[in-house]
Amino acid sequence: MSQLVRARLGGCTFEHGLYRVHTHASAEAACAVHGGGFSRVRGKVRLFGFDWLGRQFASDNKRGAGDDPEVMMLEPGTGEALEIPVPVSAFHDDEVVEYSDEALASNFYAEWMAVHESALRLDQCAGYRVPLFLGGDDLVANLELSDLSVY
């Protein structure tokens, strides 16, 4: 399913950078970058998208139906890999549409966009100056424009 998503939507950006779908090349690059920080899931997931906070969304091949696995979110701001109990197809069709704040922190994004007027490029995210796992605050004031591969 993640390959189908990538084939049909790869490189697309939604809501001025709120959510982006990986191309094959950007997924491979992100996998190489995030592999070290999320070693417990290396080889078990396939990246398909990412959000404005640089959180990577992946299909978790160990969970869900064979051709429609469930979603995992890799969160660089906290260093956590979180299971989302929704198949990839429902993530795009329902979760992102109906629960955009829960899935993508869309209200927080609106706060960020009120201060930063331009859309995020495919290679950018809003990264925490001081990561949450190091005691940083979950506030717009603690966010800065970051290169996605560096963050």
Rank of each mutant, 00 (worst) to 15 (best):
A27R: 12
E28V: 15
E28C: 14
A30D: 05
A30M: 13
G36F: 15
G37I: 08
S39K: 09
S39L: 06
V41D: 05
V41M: 15
K44W: 12
V45I: 15
V45Q: 03
R46T: 11
F48S: 12
F50K: 06
W52M: 03
G54S: 08
A58E: 01
D60I: 09
D60E: 10
P69H: 12
V71L: 06
M72G: 07
L74S: 08
E75I: 05
P76L: 13
P76R: 08
G77V: 00
G79H: 05
A81R: 01
L82Q: 07
E83D: 10
I84W: 10
P85Y: 06
V86D: 00
S89E: 10
A90R: 09
F91I: 00
D93V: 02
D94H: 02
E95M: 08
V96W: 01
E98H: 06
D101Q: 03
D101M: 03
A103F: 01
A103R: 07
L104H: 07
S106C: 08
S106H: 12
N107I: 10
Y109G: 00
A110Y: 01
A110L: 09
E111L: 14
W112K: 10
M113P: 00
M113V: 03
A114W: 07
A114C: 05
H116S: 11
E117L: 12
E117P: 07
R121D: 14
R121V: 01
L122T: 01
L122D: 07
G127V: 02
V130Q: 12
V130F: 01
L132M: 03
F133V: 11
G136K: 03
V140G: 07
A141V: 11
N142P: 11
S146A: 15
